[in-house]
Amino acid sequence: MLRAVVTYGSQGPEVLLVAAEGEEGYSEYTFADCAIIPDGESPSTKIEGLEECDEGPSPIMPEAKEFFWGAGSFVLFALLMRFFLYPRLRRSMDAREAAIQEAHASAEAERDAAKGEVSAYESALAEVRAEAAARIDAARATVEAERTTRLAEANEAISARRAAAVADVDAAHDAARAQVGTAVATVASRAVELATGRAPDPNSVSRVVDELMNSGVAQ
């Protein structure tokens, strides 16, 4: 709280507001025990033991000392930045960027080289594969041809054997037939001899037997 001291001077009433010592809320501010003089008032009498209050700065008006300290430090900072700090940082940033670019470029080149190698390898691989395929095909053709010839040979052998067997069978058949014919003719001529008492003509007997046997086979 402020205490008002009103005095009557030559120009009418004059009001001084006095902050008292030990007042609550004022102890933390350094300007206790001082006189606050309202705007436009000029007291003719000073109060005993009281200085005029330092009201604190106006919130709006710029203060010269702050202005010049701020200006000085900023100008120094800006000059340092312009001529020393920023160029150094920029240089090393640019150097790094260039190094990275270079590394990228060399990596790109290496990748291209590697790609070339890969394609060369792949073409070689394709060649080898083609050759292998050709060889396999050739081998397969050879094997096929051999197989065909062997098969043909085997078939031929089989048919030859079959023909031989058939011939054997026919021969055996014929031989058996001839034997049977002879035997039948002998039996028949013997029977006729027994029956008639004279030996029949062997030629006619064999002819009759042949006829009978043939008709028997035909039946």
Binding site: P62, E63, E66, F67, A71
Partner: peptide, 14 residues
């Protein structure tokens, strides 16, 4: 420090 008029004033004048 910029809550006082001086430094902003200086910077904007600059």
């Amino acid at each position: 420090a910029t809550a006082r008029m001086a430094i902003p004033l200086f910077l904007s004048l600059l």
